[in-house]
Design a protein around this nucleic acid. Sequence first.
DNA 1: TTCATTTCTTGATCTAGGTCAAGCCCTGTT
DNA 2: AACAGGGCTTGACCTAGATCAAGAAATGAA
Lengths: 187, 187
Amino acid sequence: MNEVLEHFSKYIQVSPELEREIMKRVHLHTFKKGELIHDARNICIESFFIREGILRTYFIKDGKEITEYFSTAGEWTNSPKSFMQRKLDIYSIDAIEDTKVFRLNVEDLVYLFHNFPEMDRYARLSMGTLVGHLLERITSLRFTSAKEKYDHFRETYHDIYHRVPLNMIASYLGISPETLSRLRAEK
Amino acid sequence: MNEVLEHFSKYIQVSPELEREIMKRVHLHTFKKGELIHDARNICIESFFIREGILRTYFIKDGKEITEYFSTAGEWTNSPKSFMQRKLDIYSIDAIEDTKVFRLNVEDLVYLFHNFPEMDRYARLSMGTLVGHLLERITSLRFTSAKEKYDHFRETYHDIYHRVPLNMIASYLGISPETLSRLRAEK
DNA sequence: TTCATTTCTTGATCTAGGTCAAGCCCTGTT
DNA sequence: AACAGGGCTTGACCTAGATCAAGAAATGAA
């Protein structure tokens, strides 16, 4: 069984029929390091399920790239508002390193939602974990010092923090690259 | 039609049967100003749909009450993790002013999820808007000054910001009461 | 290998907003 | 009416982390 199906299986029982329909719609693709996967100038019509590698969702603010978040193996990513509401949004996505993904088109996803009611259940449950992560990030932003943010990042992104350029981590954490560099040095 | 049903109708078509089952399980109740609605020392087994008034979800950090968020008319509130995973969590909820709510028990909600597949769809869609709000709050925490946070709060919580004590707003925004007081004075 | 570009470090300031402290102004209670 | 306690303001100081600047180190192209 491939990784996408494994992922769905964490939340729902995937019937053979659903499995078939998913597999029919999901296409493996490899992006090269540095490649732009979604451009904010377009509406996002695909979701990407990462098999290996790292993607970065970012936007431009005052001429600088600000990292919104990193996505790694086993996660779906897209430009959320753009994808769900079929309109333009600020986020672009690129590859931090060579990345293998399964691509899934909006229309295909909609088809799955329409024909398999258990997909709503999947969405409800997986969004529950997403909400949990977001709440945690909010708490972290409100109460922790730069040092604590960095330590927390190293723990939770343990396997990728040395693969991502420092200034992207800094903008993700909302601290300056200089401060991050100093934190890193002091230990 | 009452407010709860109106709320569901925003996301899904509520069948007469679902309507009946919801109405059977939802109970109107009034809390007095200052009353504790959910105590963090218990597992949260109810959700509250607010008809009028203001509830505040908070937790204790270093002996101080920190406001996580305010909930107002037309919204559901509970202690999310505690409610969904049936375990203890840090949040308590109290009433900022006299508040009328509809109460709904976890088990009753589970019943609805089990018997009405459209409820999954409702949950998926309503969590979508929640995720949108959380993302916005994250952006606000990362990039805005105290002044901008306060201005933004006044806009989005326009109808309640003068009904809530200043120090609760301050802790919600993650700034000190003194700073908030000064911001308020300077205009 | 060399040169150029990007990434990272280190140092010197600067500032938004936190902390501490004191006093005032309410609102409710006796 | 008085007084107690919470809520709010204002002032003086302090500190975490931003910004500005310049150089070092790594990466990668030719």
